[in-house]
Design a protein around this nucleic acid. Structure first.
Lengths: 232, 232
DNA sequence: ACCGTGACTTGATAAATATCAAGTATCGGG
DNA sequence: CCCGATACTTGATATTTATCAAGTCACGGT
């Protein structure tokens, strides 16, 4: 592992609060690897061998049931994924696939558990990471149970616009097919939802979104910090 | 706090793995309180002042949006709730209401965070608690996104039957109205779903459920450990 | 014992969402 | 530059779910 890469890694929220010797211990068994798009990193049901952290690129987490499949979340740097399975030494509940070509840090799961037992700072960082993940998925559950598909799309657009600087013009970060799965609807429904949003002056040109009447969109969306704000 | 009550508390998964002095420290600021049914313990949006653990009784966690409301989960002993908000010192994302009269342990949230920083065993226990909660919500999200309402009910029955000893006969632990919200459907839909299950030899007499043809129900439900098994 | 409230059910209907099919557009590889 | 695969859109339709309304029933409080 190169020195500058090591620098980058110990700045991750996960490692920033642990003792130097814990970081040493963890990084001894760790490695960083680059993966091209579409690589499958984990499949749900497998044993949790590694904790993964995204250094760059993005990862799609998905789950399947019978012949159905859905996207649970899309993760980017500097976040981790499938930490819960590692902490509990259980099976992955989700599959992880590389979306944008990614650099991934992999920590052997047994080392992680051992480091937790020995370093309260690290264990706390893991707990905080888990708490964040918990809140994100709890918010997503509220999103699913309390909103219609049109409302979920409208809120996603409002949120994405803020995230990209509030220019009221941005490009979708991934395929509409994946966005549809992420929002919990069939691709055809997403297509029609975009068509409906034309009434609210939302213009869609392939992957580019232009929000001409911000107020109208926000009124439709009714964003709620307790569902949409990840840092509340 | 009585000695036997203290005994009971330090056996909670949360405290079982921490150092004696950490338990002392935590229990110094803690108290146990009995609450009658329907008491509101927290409201979503409030600051997280306490970590709650259920010693007996049960708690309903719910969330609202506009004029809608849903039940996120129902918690019993020896589980905790709203730990994530405490760990991160943020706002509660869910409201908690007493369902069955309950004895609740309350730990001041600042003490919890302080204890985590000082005791790796306790921080690890919190991380494990969070990991369990995370997996439960993630499973619930899969349940919502990948199944129809009839399938959710069928699986809930299968699961509940196993939980209560597999006698193929049990009593609903709470009102159908709440069950409907828990399963993500309108009460009328639940009513009709029960009616549909008559075809599968599921008999409903007010709150008593009798499953006459277990195989038929299980075939309809298609239970999946990665969605339904909390300990996988 | 009576009353009133609220849970539960059932019917009728509307709205939301999924599915199937067909056509167009787009994009990467040869 | 062309081809084939796949994403995306749109229409028609089916299924799922919600809503509104009315009636029954059970229960707690007076």
């Amino acid at each position: 592992m190169r020195a500058e890469e090591r620098e980058e890694i110990v700045r991750l929220p996960l490692l920033a609060a642990c003792r130097p010797e814990t970081a040493d211990f963890l990084l001894r068994g760790a490695f960083v690897q680059r993966f091209p798009a579409h690589t499958n990193l984990t499949r749900e049901g497998e044993k949790a061998d590694f904790l993964y952290a995204v250094l760059s690129g993005s990862i799609e987490l998905s789950a399947a049931y019978l012949d159905r499949e859905t996207t649970i979340a899309v993760i980017g740097a500097p976040h981790t994924f499938i930490v819960a399975a590692v902490v509990l030494d259980r099976l992955y509940l989700q599959s992880a696939r590389v979306m944008e070509p990614a650099r991934i840090l992999m920590l052997p799961s047994e080392s992680v558990r051992q480091a937790m037992r020995g370093d309260a700072g690290f264990a706390t960082a893991i707990a905080e990471e888990m708490a964040n993940s918990y809140r994100n998925v709890a918010q997503e559950l509220k999103n699913q149970k309390l909103r219609t598909s049109l409302e979920r799309l409208a809120n996603w657009l409002v949120h994405r616009d803020k995230e990209t600087g509030g220019g009221h013009r941005f490009v979708l970060p991934y395929e509409k097919k994946i966005l549809a799965a992420r929002l919990g609807m069939a691709p055809e429904v997403l297509s029609r939802a975009f068509a409906t949003l034309a009434q609210y002056d939302v213009h869609v040109d392939s992957a580019t979104i232009i929000v001409k009447d911000w107020k109208a969109l926000e009124k439709l969306a009714h964003p709620d910090p307790l569902i949409d704000d990840e840092t509340i």
